[in-house]
Write a protein that binds this DNA or RNA. Structure first.
Lengths: 247, 247
DNA sequence: CACGATTTGTTCGTATGTATT
DNA sequence: AAATACATACGAACAAATCGT
């Protein structure tokens, strides 16, 4: 279980060495590291070995590698604290704004695509047969930057033309209330994590396999009937969900 | 922003192809994929290219690569649903059990190490000078399997001999109550994600860079004084934190 | 805007080490 | 102990992205 000492393997030893130099401040956040060729010369190893070391540092979020320009010390972006309050049940146009108000004051949501998608778990959550399922993908922006990708699974018969009736910059709750006369309530939300796939990398940046926060859950209407199952992915460095306990 | 079609690059095309075969059920979960040599023969590419494709599938959690034995379709392990309830403020020996009771009925916590660690953020959360900071690392097990790694930052003067006075299988709340006569209350908890580093891989398995759920927060005593700042890491496939909304 | 220089990305080939069976 | 399968490392070449002239 207890693996061997880091260092017996060349690329991990180099990754450790470079990582320590970064925390020691040899290169400041945003600054460029030596080029791969320079590191090859310094450590006298193959370029692939250097690349493995740099790739590991990128996975752990220490550096950012940019083709054509170089490798840079990752500079920590502002983290949005999104508050979670089980007492607040109604979802309205202001609630999204309010929950992330700590840093940002401009939250938008735009449609990426609407497709049919027979997702079994989603169908179970909605208590719907899978053939009536539609999936709406949206991109959430904070202060103009892409921030999160959301997928909403919903009843295609009830809300199939939601994408067409979308209002610029959303958010979804507004559209549902103004166009479909549906008031949304939280039912449950769950927090987990996944590795970024090609879709998330396309819209959010970062690299394949980068850790993402996943927040999924079900929202219901005033009768308690499930309206959608949602699965939102956010780059891990960008946000955290905070629960405050009352005493 | 919208990247090019996956497939212009060899290893990604192969990764997509293999991934599709997995979802198509050509190999069932737990079953072994063809060996790297076999895939080299089938796709007529270099072994490094095959390895890049497999590595990507591993990062996204589709397969598991085991040195010496082979590459296998990832087996979806049972997910522990850990409930988050801001109404429950007291942390006692049963609360940890209760929150994860959905699947497991045996939760343990054992000490890995106690070190001095001047962690600035932790010091701020505890309103303590960094030189009085101690860090206690523990391993949480569920049903005998390693489940989570926790790091507690605490006041070395007040709780420095906590590790020595640890009771087998913990949990921490019991030790603090029985040995130090401290009753714990939640102050706040936050959820985020990170990539697994060497320490987490050592104790939890998985691979470097695998997504982990991070739950950090502060617990206080009955006077509202911070007792510790905790940062817990769980393999993403193993658990999710659930918030139920009351109506 | 074009072009070349620089820097990272992909792919080939080969050899050897290490864990598992 | 031997065979199998993945891990690490070296060397070389070309492709693709970026940046300055």
């Amino acid at each position: 279980m207890t693996g061997r000492v880091a260092g017996t393997v060349l690329y991990r030893a180099i990754a450790d060495e470079l990582g320590q130099r970064v925390v020691a401040g040899e290169w400041k956040p945003g600054q460029q590291l030596p080029t791969e060729s320079a590191l090859v010369a310094e450590f006298k190893v193959n370029r692939l070995t250097i690349r493995q070391a740099l790739a590991q540092l990128q996975r752990v979020g220490v550096v950012e590698i940019c083709q054509g320009s170089g490798t840079f010390v990752a500079n920590p972006p502002p983290v949005l604290e999104i508050s979670v309050d089980p007492a607040q049940q109604v979802i309205d146009e202001g609630s999204v704004q309010a929950t992330v108000k700590s840093v940002t004051n401009d939250v938008t949501e735009s449609v990426i695509a609407y497709t049919r998608d027979r997702n079994e778990p989603a169908a179970r959550h909605l208590r719907l047969p899978a053939e009536h399922l539609g999936r709406l993908d949206t991109l959430v922006g904070a202060d103009g930057d892409p921030f999160a990708v959301s997928s909403y699974w919903l009843d295609d018969r009830r809300l199939g033309d939601l994408a067409a009736k979308w209002m610029p910059d959303g958010p979804l709750a507004t559209v549902l209330r103004d166009v479909f006369d549906v008031t949304l309530y939280y039912d449950w939300r769950a927090f987990s994590a996944v590795a970024a796939g090609p879709i998330e990398v396309d819209h959010l940046g970062g690299h394949l396999g980068a850790p993402l926060i996943v927040r999924d859950g079900v929202s219901v209407d005033s009768d308690g009937v499930p309206v959608f199952y949602v699965r939102r992915r956010i780059r891990a460095e960008r946000a955290s969900y905070v629960v405050h306990y009352r005493r």
